[in-house]
Design a protein around this nucleic acid. Structure first.
Lengths: 136, 136
DNA sequence: GTATATTCCTACTATTCAGATAGGAATATA
DNA sequence: TATATTCCTATCTGAATAGTAGGAATATAC
């Protein structure tokens, strides 16, 4: 229950890899072999990370990916959302109008509360916590 | 991300339905039509709820399902776990030995913390909150 | 004791989605 | 011009979820 996609786990490893390079860049192939991630799959992951502004890239020879900003400023929520979108226990979480049960939907507030709890936890932790391995 | 299965949502509606009967029983067919849940699918859900001790049943004519205990004593965690098992962001959450990354797995503590946050939220809320609709 | 209403059990089908793969276009460097 | 890279699009595959189907077991009522 509530399992995290392989994609998100890969993304965290990739970001942690880049974080350790302190601003230097790495190619997708470097990251893939170091982290044991299928290269072609990783390319898609890096593309999403780039769309979310978490990494920047350069094409061509000597190209690669570089982390944007400092590790302590990259929230885990940002990485998770870059991969699988916002936390949504139920689809109607952000609009009562879209709820099949309508106004009568009693569990809706409950799910919104769950979303808040998850978002808060993910937002309180940064990539730095992962890299340093000294979080909770 | 972190979406809840239809099964769990159905289960909550079914339990809320039973809770409102205050100890009286209802047939699967009653619940199915009142809550708009496919009957045959609901039967499987009720079977799991029974296995977890959340409802009891009686067969034959005048049979049906009855909620066990009081609504305030039925945690939402119990319902969720009855449907989809325990909260497990990553599969190695309960044993480092089963972690493919082994001792070197930095994110593991992070995921365990997430599990704790989710478990805590689900455990703090009961079926009573849902039925009364005045939670958070 | 027969008809009926119900839970309970097993198997099957359909659909969706995650994970992965493939090929090659665009682009930058040497 | 050769090469190394990101970037784009399409496709395949296996597993899981959601739902369906049929009937066995069991209890009640007449």
């Amino acid at each position: 229950m509530f399992s995290v996609s392989a994609r998100t786990q890969y993304a965290i490893r990739a970001m942690a890899h880049l974080a350790r390079l302190e601003g230097k860049s790495a190619t997708a192939a470097d990251i893939a072999s170091a982290q044991g991630i299928p290269l072609k799959y990783l390319e898609g992951i890096l593309s999403r990370l780039k769309l979310s502004g978490l990494v920047e890239s350069e094409r061509g020879k000597n190209g690669g990916y570089r982390m944007q900003g400092r590790a302590q400023d990259v929230s885990m929520l940002a990485i998770v959302e870059a991969m699988d979108g916002s936390v949504k226990p139920v689809s109607c979480v952000d609009s009562a109008a879209s709820c099949a049960q309508g106004r009568a939907c009693l569990p809706r507030k409950f799910w919104i509360g769950l979303k808040s709890a998850i978002d808060a936890y993910l937002n309180e932790h940064s990539l730095k916590d992962i890299v340093e391995g000294d979080q909770v």
